[in-house]
């Protein structure tokens, strides 16, 4: 299924202006120029170590910027003031942790309610609203291990969305899940994007995920290509990104990639 952007993309949310950065002296991002409009749905492709997660973390303010700058809302607000909903890779989660769906979603409230130990009535309503929106209302008292892959991802989305973030950042949201769950996750993300949520995600799945997105960025420490899959899915771009030969084919209005092993 092709996900088409239906939002008005006229407002710049995040702008990378010649950004170079990384961790502990390593240059993971090199000269990044990138504009993310409010309401966009962007996927990032690239091999392991290409800087996809580092780019996400640069928006989260967790890497060292050596040169250039990241401008938020045209420089109107500080990076720390940008309300970000972050969904980590599910493979990093401790599923044995004794936490229910409700408790996990409530964690997301922390950004807007730092000073009170318990959530108030208004926040409770926000938790109820997001759980209804994501179809989690029947699962609120379940421990996170007792959920299916799709339900688990929806719970983490609930935590990220409960404080109405300016942007939703997801690190490989479809990694390690079956085809049906992948479809379910992507349908939810698409629906959220149609409701105006800006989404920035990384993925390793070229055909089943990236080829369906409105905008894809190919990254190998610097930006190799940026545009719609139909524009940038070329054999040259994939060779430059992955260092591997691929063939691209058109099918049903979309471009797909065949690995040449």
């Amino acid at each position: 299924m092709l996900y088409r952007n239906q939002n008005d993309l006229s407002e710049i949310l995040i702008q990378f202006d010649n950004v170079s950065g990384g961790y502990e002296g390593e240059l993971t991002l090199n000269n990044i120029n990138l504009v993310i409009q409010k309401g966009e749905f962007i996927g990032m492709l690239g091999p392991s170590g290409s800087g996809k997660t580092t780019l996400l973390k640069s928006v989260l303010g967790d890497i060292r910027i050596y040169s250039g700058e990241i401008i938020i809302n045209g420089g109107n607000i500080n990076k720390n003031e940008l309300n970000i909903g972050y969904v980590p890779q599910l493979e990093t989660i401790d599923w044995n942790f004794p936490i229910t769906v409700r408790q996990l979603i409530e964690m997301g409230i922390i950004r807007t309610s730092k000073y009170f130990p318990w959530i108030n009535k208004e926040e409770k309503l926000a938790v109820e609203a997001i759980s209804n929106r994501l179809g989690l209302e029947e699962l609120m008292n379940r421990q996170i291990r007792e959920l299916s892959g799709g339900q688990q991802q929806r719970t983490f989305l609930g935590r990220a969305l409960v404080s109405n973030p300016d942007v939703l950042i997801l690190d490989e949201p479809t990694s390690g899940v079956d085809i049906r769950t992948k479809e379910e996750i992507m349908a939810i993300l698409n629906s959220l994007n149609h409701q105006g949520v800006t989404i920035l995600m990384t993925t390793h799945e070229i055909n089943s995920v990236a080829s369906q997105l409105p905008r894809v960025i190919c990254l190998k420490n610097s930006i190799i290509a940026d545009g719609s899959p139909n524009e940038i899915f070329t054999e040259e771009n994939f060779y430059a990104t992955y260092g591997a030969a691929v063939k691209t084919i058109d099918h049903d209005g979309s471009k797909f990639v065949i690995e040449m092993l």
Binding site: D62, Y86, D94, I99, M107, I110, R111
Partner: peptide, 18 residues
């Protein structure tokens, strides 16, 4: 309560949530 729970559950992500 909330901060300790978040930091115990997922230390790295907790900092992204302030």
């Amino acid at each position: 309560y909330k901060q300790l729970l978040f930091a115990t559950f997922d230390y790295d992500v907790a900092k992204y949530y302030g």
